[in-house]
């Protein structure tokens, strides 16, 4: 089974390992993410009904209301936060959401994580060294 290595920049330090959940469209905090459960509640979103808790969250960026980070903050306090966050587009919303999640977070990758990571892949994040290792769940 091959591994794919991505290199990027640290947003918040630390290491984590877990299963990926990949948001292929941006979601909003307000109206998009349930503060209690970490569930995606926007019916228009492909991840509707799924939870980000205990997963390596891979996303392009944030959208919607400025309470985006507050939703991630509440989700963390309610024990429903992700294990790590990987994103492409740095907006204040996205960056603050990642910082207040108190988990390893990275951005600025050499390879777009959305192009190689799929739901269910095993992902190891080492934000301090700027390395992400992806083990595919299915061989393509």
């Amino acid at each position: 089974m091959g591994e794919i290595i991505l290199r990027g920049r640290k947003v918040a330090g630390g290491r984590a390992e877990g299963e990926a959940i990949v948001a292929r469209e941006n979601f909003s905090g307000f109206g998009g993410l349930d503060r209690e459960t970490g569930m995606i509640i926007d019916e228009r979103h492909p991840l509707y009904g799924r939870c980000i808790g205990g997963k390596i969250l891979v996303m392009n960026g944030a959208k919607g209301s400025s309470s985006f980070s507050t939703h991630f903050h509440h989700v963390r306090l309610n024990g429903a936060g992700p294990l790590a966050i990987l994103y492409n587009v740095a907006t204040s919303k996205m960056v603050m959401g990642a910082i207040v999640s108190h988990v390893p977070a990275m951005t600025g990758f050499d390879i777009d994580p959305l192009s190689v990571i799929e739901d269910g892949d095993l992902v190891r994040v080492d934000a301090d060294s700027g390395v992400v290792c992806v083990v595919k769940a299915r061989s393509s």
Partner: peptide
């Protein structure tokens, strides 16, 4: 930038914000 509650909280007590975006 579209700040969050946390960054505006820090900004109101210091009068400052990172110069970016």
């Amino acid at each position: 930038n579209t700040e969050g509650i946390e960054s505006t909280g820090a900004a109101m007590l210091t009068g400052k914000i990172p110069n970016w975006g």
